[in-house]
């Protein structure tokens, strides 16, 4: 079973999913997020993909099922609540139970969820250990290793810890954005003499900060709480929580500049940027925004990043 998951909002504790990391195919839908479009293309065209699981959390994902409806593969859309209170945890817990049932109807039993919860907890603990040392390792190699890991089934995942050391520069930057398909961008940042000391990427900072679920507790509620109570995506409609968590980390790590990466036509990050840059401005921290047109577009970033490195 190869279920392609679009987003970090799809929990890994229910069943094996493969994280979508990018697709270099053709796109055809105007004004549509390039990342979502690449995902649609991969689900449709990659014969090794048995199904797609994606959240209802932004307008691109909301209508994704309409584009995929004729592909003949297993499709599941999770209603990720637009709030994070107890009502939302209860609702998402019930949704997760139904999601598991749908997967099992199609593919058979998914195995022990408690064991998966423990495995996710243990893996995230290891990621946290590496993440806290970001300033001293190659960020590009770290991200590449994480991406590679997320394309494997949970029990085959290992966190690479022997990453090459890299001397930190005085230009300490923080990276904000959605899943960074083009890991070359991380290399460009480093080539410009900047050191990434933290990020809020779903595959990195957000995994490192994900609360641990109790394998002995009410499992679906525990998993739902992980999705709703960790570092949030702007699609979860709680900018205050994002701003508060990010600014705390930015100040704690004495960041000189923030690199804000968005996908073209990704409104949640565009809205977040408008308040993010204002808040950074009040703190006297420089920020630059890179808008990528698709999941592999890093071509134009070099010049912008060179200029930004000079500024900070």
């Amino acid at each position: 079973m190869k279920l392609l998951a679009l987003s970090g909002l799809i929990p890994e504790q229910i069943c094996d999913i493969v994280r979508f990391t990018g697709y270099p195919g053709e796109r055809s839908v105007a004004h549509y997020c390039g990342y979502a479009e690449d995902y649609i293309s991969m689900v449709k065209q990659d014969d090794t993909v048995d199904g797609a699981v994606f959240p209802k959390s932004c307008d691109s994902c909301r209508i994704m099922g309409s584009y995929l409806e004729d592909c003949g593969k297993f499709l599941y859309q999770l209603n990720i609540p637009a709030r994070q209170d107890e009502l939302a945890v209860d609702f998402l817990a019930a949704e997760l139970e139904q999601y598991q049932a749908a997967v099992e109807r199609r593919f058979g039993a998914v195995g022990s969820i408690a064991e998966r919860v423990e495995a996710v907890n243990a893996r995230n603990r290891e990621i946290r250990g590496v993440y806290e040392n970001l300033a001293n390792i190659s960020y590009r190699e770290y991200l590449e290793a994480v991406h590679d890991m997320l394309t494997k089934p949970l029990f085959e995942q290992t966190v690479k810890k022997d990453l090459p050391e890299k001397k930190a520069s005085g230009k300490r930057v923080y990276l904000v954005g959605s899943f960074l398909s083009g890991t070359e961008l991380a290399g460009v940042i480093e080539d410009c003499g900047m050191t990434v000391v933290g990020d809020n990427l779903p595959e990195s900072g957000r995994l490192a900060a994900m609360p641990e679920a109790d394998p002995g507790g009410e499992l679906y509620r525990e998993i739902a709480a992980c999705v709703l109570r960790g570092r949030l995506s702007p699609t979860q409609d709680n900018f205050r929580q994002i701003l508060s968590a990010d600014m705390e980390e930015i100040e704690r790590k004495q960041v000189n500049g923030v690199i804000f990466v968005t996908q073209k036509y990704c409104e949640p990050y565009d809205y977040l940027f408008s308040v993010y840059q204002k808040m950074l401005g009040q703190k006297g921290i420089a920020v630059t925004k890179l808008t990528l047109s698709d999941s592999a577009d890093v071509r134009k970033a070099g010049l912008t990043l060179e200029a930004f490195a000079d500024v900070i």
Binding site: C58, A82, D237, R240, S274
Partner: peptide, 27 residues
């Protein structure tokens, strides 16, 4: 899904409570 996201900006501008009503829909 755009509207509640947009309204986060308004909430920052006015520093007032934002209530997001979550309607899961037909699916």
């Amino acid at each position: 899904n755009t509207l509640p996201t947009w309204w986060n900006i308004l909430a920052e501008r006015y520093q007032v409570p934002l209530i997001v009503l979550d309607y899961p829909g037909e699916t």
